[in-house]
Design a protein around this nucleic acid. Structure first.
Lengths: 253, 253
DNA sequence: GATGGGTGTTCGGCAATGTCGAACGCGGGT
DNA sequence: ACCCGCGTTCGACATTGCCGAACACCCATC
């Protein structure tokens, strides 16, 4: 039976729409978005509701994601070897660098954040685990793209977020080559003005890059006056990445 | 077409198994667990892999949860009005009480943690968002059970975690009645020895309890010498719960 | 108060759809 | 070299879920 099961594919498409839509959606809305009859969509929704993957508002009849899906999804993190192995090292990186730490993997051309340690001051920060970051404008993404076995940037326009964002494919290609050879990446005010990030690749026992770890924070603390990342911070990040890679069984470099 | 779609139900069952199993599982393993032919399970797995809900190890052919599912699940939090509204208040509760704060909802008889603020010291703590807590042995759970519109404890044995855990259904029923009338719950060393938690209900505009907020920490800090929760901490928790309820449109009490 | 358009939901018939169970190929253990 | 277990493929059957129109409902509108 080579060929995906349609009802499941459709159910997945519905869930993806509900996830991206941010707010509740109605049957008709989903139906037109997918080009399917209302009845069909309703049947799928009923099943998804039955298994707890979606919930329905009692007043308006609209649908939204369900708690069961959230719980199941979150247990992805437990099974994720990268994240499990990285927990201790990311804490210590946060302590040494005094900045917030994030770990990410490449997922459909973007960076999926699988772990996040807050900056060790008491400022209030929002948890970004589960969020998707643009690959071309974040240090994590640059590292992952540069070491990705498949071809890189893909098609898609390179979105600009600040005046500094690198939106030229050729320039990006050169940055990635540089990243690959020197073993780390940085991004200075390319995603958020005043914010800088630095990252390095994490490899597994086969030597392939399975993720990246990096720090981010205000430019005043992360960079020298010449807008170059401070060398000791780069060292911290690279050492953390190397330590995690070793834990994952990578050949000691 | 009243009746759930089987392939989707089965796909959901597979995902649930993969989530609970914690480790990778094989086709045969899943097939016997569900009482289905291997071929059928394989077809479903292929589809789930195609949409990114599961991933397959390249060496061993075993399956585990996929990144797409995790990302979709995490966007449940964005849509969740309870959590969104509670973000600010939980930060301030953490600051006032100097303890870690959690917000939970009832989900299939257990407490689903939808938000977690670390204790504002620099100790390293693990993020519990997405985790399920036992309802009968946590303050959050007690609050939710006590105010649940449906009947309570359900069948299931009450698991004991420490010598203090309340495992007697009758005693629990009495505790819940008490909880409901006074408007808050506590749990002293019933889940982890040396740990205490206090919680209060969050209500929405219809007055039904949609969640609970609470703090937890070591008994020395949370309790008076007589093992009773310190009254000012209880007040902080109740005030936070009331503030969030007001944000959600609950009638001012 | 009747009306229209907008929901979400139900129903029955057709055939496309996914299910089944046996057979295949491959690897690791013995 | 063998065997047993694994994940995977295949083809035939009929069950399964799809479709599109009709239903029930709510809320604005007139």
């Amino acid at each position: 039976m080579p060929g995906p099961i349609q009802s499941i594919e459709r159910a997945a498409a519905i869930l993806r729409l509900l996830a991206s839509g941010a707010r509740k959606m109605g049957v008709g809305e989903l139906a037109t978005a997918l080009g399917l009859p209302k009845g069909t969509v309703h049947g799928i929704l009923r099943t998804l509701q039955h298994v707890g993957f979606v919930e329905q508002s009692q007043d308006t009849g609209k649908y939204q994601l369900g708690a069961a899906l959230f719980h199941i999804g979150s247990s992805y993190l437990d099974a994720n070897e990268l994240r499990t192995r990285a927990l201790n090292w990311s804490d210590s990186l946060a302590a040494r660098s005094k900045e917030s730490v994030r770990i990410g993997t490449l997922h459909e051309g973007q960076v999926l954040v699988v772990h996040h340690v807050f900056r060790p001051d008491n400022s209030s920060q929002v948890l970004e685990v589960g969020a998707l970051l643009p690959a071309h404008a974040s240090a994590l993404g640059r590292v992952l793209l540069a070491n990705d076995p498949l071809g890189q940037p893909a098609g898609a326009e390179l979105a600009g977020f600040t005046p500094y964002t690198c939106t030229d494919p050729d320039q990006l290609r050169q940055l990635l080559a540089e990243t690959k050879s020197r073993g780390w990446a940085a991004e200075v005010e390319e995603m958020v003005e005043g914010e800088v990030s630095v990252a390095a690749p994490i490899r597994d026992r086969r030597g392939v890059t399975v993720g990246a770890i990096g720090i981010s924070g205000p430019i005043e603390r992360l960079c020298d006056p010449d807008r170059a990342p401070r060398t000791e911070l780069v060292s911290y990040v690279r050492e953390a990445a190397r330590a995690i890679s070793r834990d994952l069984g990578a050949i000691p470099w």
